[in-house]
Amino acid sequence: MSEAEAKPAGRVIPAPAVTVESQPFWDAAAEGRFLIKRCTACGKAHWYPRAFCPFCASDDTVWEESPGEGEIYTFSIMRRSPTGPYVIGYVTLDEGPAVLTNFVDCDPDSLRIGQRVKVRFQPTDGGPPAPVFCPA
């Protein structure tokens, strides 16, 4: 294990800002379900979730439960943090969209671009749990 190992008691994720547009996502997150938005007009999934499709401007979008699996597109280990190092990065979901997130439950120095990861939910500071990813 390296000195940069993510500590479970490290950085606390602040409460996410919840909007009328994103409320269903966070309600599902509270139940441990990871939702993405898909457009029924053009068929594409997008991230972050919007009420409309950013590719074809249709209102015909539906929430879809995702297994939350994908691969690491990129990441960076933030060493300057009062609560210890933490990892920010993007996951390319198997459904297509890239998701900004934290990588947890891992040795940060062992992470690699292209590595398979899976979603899990982490408590936040007074808000709904937030999706984070760990090695699959």
Partner: peptide
């Protein structure tokens, strides 16, 4: 409920800074 930047809830919580987003 927030009515700020639409991406805020999905991005700001992950500790993004200039250093680590350029690091990515």
């Amino acid at each position: 409920l927030s009515d700020g930047a639409p991406e805020a809830g999905f991005e700001n919580i992950y500790g993004g800074s200039t250093h680590n987003t350029y690091g990515m």
